[in-house]
């Protein structure tokens, strides 16, 4: 029976090719949506990890969130630095959703005010690191060339260096500047900070502060995106359903075209089960081919999204399994056509 299955695939290859491309495009979109959801995690992982800290000290009422507006005196950073267990500590100012003007363009950026040379000061991929006031190191997503001047709030700052893949909250690029410039931007120059980051675990903390690990910090940021991530995951499931429907439509049409063949095969001694297995195998082959096509073309479709897209390896690994399930579900629509074929109809 498998010979007939494969021969039919070759015979109707145009039909199957259209289904492979159609279902493949839909599965590629599903992969990209996985990548989009994964991108939210990957970007915050890179940005938080890029600070180089093990612990983040924030006000108690911030509940580990670096996207809030709670502040505390910069002097606490020195207290925390002296805490037993801490080998290194640095104050940070994180100011969200600032409008940056680059030439005639504007874009929203996340500002990280860092102590130059300390934790949080980024390692640049082009240009040079921060060395004083009036300078910024920008993520390439900002789109500002080295040596140009950008305006953040009322401050004009020169781009001295670039970093890559540093963004938050769904693709908003990070701009690094000196702590003093960030304090001038956000607090009118008052010595306030939003976090202290440390290496080594602080044994004691000033009253009203609490330490959180990198994972808790990342999770708090992702909580802000949970609605978007949920919507994306639901859309991804819809894509699988649409892929299944495309394969099912192909199978159904194919089964309708083959009703006489089924009757003849039954008249020649084939069982209903064997006919169904042949159809299911066709559906699985088409779905798997669509999955392979999706894996290939998804690499060329990243440009469809401005947000960071990081397709997890697990998505690639599970796609073939999903394709098999999609194929088997799709083949059920043709089940009745195959099993219900009346061998006497071969005479008709």
């Amino acid at each position: 029976m498998f010979e007939i299955t494969f021969a039919d695939l070759r015979y109707r290859y145009r039909q199957f090719l259209i289904a492979v491309i159609g279902a493949g495009l839909v599965l590629a979109m599903a992969l990209l949506l996985s990548g989009l959801a994964g991108g939210f995690t990957a970007e915050i992982d890179r940005t938080v990890g890029g600070v180089g800290a093990q612990w983040w000290v924030l006000p108690d009422n911030a509940h580990s969130s670096i996207t809030g507006s709670e502040v505390f005196p910069q002097s606490d950073a020195a207290v925390i630095a002296r805490s037993p267990g801490v080998t290194r500590a640095a104050p940070l100012v994180i100011v969200l959703q600032q409008v940056a003007r680059i030439g005639s363009q504007t874009s929203n950026v996340e500002v990280f005010g860092v102590q130059i040379g300390n934790l949080g000061d980024p390692a640049v991929t082009a240009g040079r690191p921060l060395s004083g006031a009036g300078q910024v190191v920008t993520d390439t997503g900002v789109g500002a060339a080295l040596g140009t001047t950008i305006t953040v709030g009322a401050m004009s700052l020169r781009v001295v260096g670039e970093v890559t893949d540093r963004s938050m909250l769904g693709g908003f690029p990070v701009v690094y500047m000196s702590l003093h410039d960030a304090q001038a931007l956000a607090f009118g120059g008052r010595p306030l900070i939003t976090e202290v980051v440390t290496r080594g675990t602080p044994a004691t903390l000033p009253p009203g502060l609490a330490a959180s690990g990198n994972q808790a910090i990342e999770q708090s940021v992702l909580t802000n995106l949970s609605g978007a991530i949920s919507s994306i995951n639901n859309s991804k499931i819809m894509m699988w359903v649409v892929a299944a429907m495309i394969v099912a439509a192909l199978l159904y049409v194919s089964a309708l075209q083959r009703v006489r063949d089924f009757a003849v095969l039954k008249a020649l001694g084939s069982s209903s089960l064997a006919l169904f297995v042949g159809l299911a195998l066709q559906a699985v082959i088409v779905a798997l081919a669509a999955a392979v096509f999706a894996m290939i073309i998804s690499n060329f479709m990243f440009g469809l999204f401005k947000q960071p897209v990081a397709i997890p390896a697990s998505a690639f690994a599970t796609l073939p399994a999903i394709a098999v399930v999609v194929g088997l579900i799709a083949s059920l629509v043709a089940l009745r056509r195959a099993t219900g074929a009346d061998p006497a109809a071969a005479f008709g």
């Binding site: 007939i4 109707r12 095969l265 064997a274």
Partner: peptide, 20 residues
Amino acid sequence: AFNLIPSLSARSNVMVPLRL
């Protein structure tokens, strides 16, 4: 109407009942 399987060659069509 002959009722040969259109995707199979004449030889494969004749083989079908034997393979089944």
